[in-house]
Simulated assay, not measured.
Amino acid sequence: MSRVTQRRRVARLSADGAVSERGDTLAGEEPLEVRVNGSSFSVTMRTPGHDFDLAVGFLHGEGVVTSWSDVAQIDYRSGIGADGQRDYNVVDVTLADGVAPPDPGLERHVYTSSSCGICGTASIESVRRSGAHDLGADETAYPLASLLDLPERLRVEQAVFDRTGGVHAAGLFLPGEDGLELACLREDVGRHNAVDKVVGWALRERGMPLRGGVLQVSGRASFELVQKAVLAGIPVLSAVSAPSSLAVDLAQESGLTLIGFNRGSSLNVYCGHERVEPATSTPATTPEPAGDGPEQPRD
Rank of each mutant, 00 (worst) to 15 (best):
Y76C: 05
P48S: 02
H60L: 13
A100D: 10
S113G: 15
V156Y: 12
E157G: 14
C116L: 10
R153T: 02
T94R: 08
G81E: 03
T121D: 01
L59H: 11
D70C: 04
H109P: 00
H60I: 04
G171E: 05
I74N: 04
E157C: 11
D51F: 03
G61H: 11
G79C: 07
H50A: 09
T121F: 07
I80F: 04
A159I: 10
Q85H: 14
R155G: 09
T112G: 10
T94Y: 09
D83N: 12
A141P: 01
Q73I: 06
T66M: 01
R155Y: 06
S67M: 00
D87C: 01
G81D: 14
H133I: 11
G84W: 13
D92A: 06
D87S: 06
D70T: 10
E107N: 09
A82N: 05
A100V: 05
T47H: 08
G61I: 07
S130P: 00
S69Q: 08
S67G: 01
G171S: 13
G131E: 01
E125Q: 05
Y142C: 02
T66Q: 11
G131M: 03
R128Y: 13
V65G: 06
T112F: 00
D75N: 08
H50M: 04
T94L: 07
L59S: 01
D83Q: 08
C116M: 05
R163I: 03
F161Q: 07
L54R: 04
R128A: 14
L154N: 14
V93A: 13
D70R: 06
H168M: 04
R128M: 11
T112E: 05
D70L: 05
H168E: 02
L54C: 03
A72W: 06
A82D: 03
G105T: 12
S126W: 01
A72V: 07
D53F: 12
S114P: 08
H50T: 02
A145N: 11
L95H: 09
P48A: 00
G171N: 02
S146K: 12
L144W: 11
Y142N: 01
D75S: 12
A122L: 03
V167L: 14
L95A: 08
A145L: 11
A170S: 10
V110S: 04
A137G: 15
D83T: 12
E107H: 15
I124N: 00
A132V: 04
H133T: 09
V65F: 07
R153L: 15
D97F: 08
I124E: 07
Y76H: 15
E139M: 11
Y76W: 13
Q158Y: 00
D97Q: 15
G165K: 06
C119F: 06
R128P: 03
F161L: 13
L54P: 02
N89W: 10
T164H: 07
I124G: 00
E157R: 12
P48Y: 01
R129D: 00
E125C: 01
A141H: 11
S146P: 12
T140H: 08
G49T: 07
D83Y: 04
P104E: 03
D138P: 00
R128V: 09
D53A: 10
G105D: 12
V156D: 10
S78A: 14
D149Q: 11
L144H: 12
S115G: 08
E125S: 06
D162T: 02
R86M: 15
G131A: 09
G120V: 06
P102T: 03
R163K: 14
L54F: 11
D83W: 03
R155N: 12
D75K: 10
I80L: 13
A96N: 00
P143S: 01
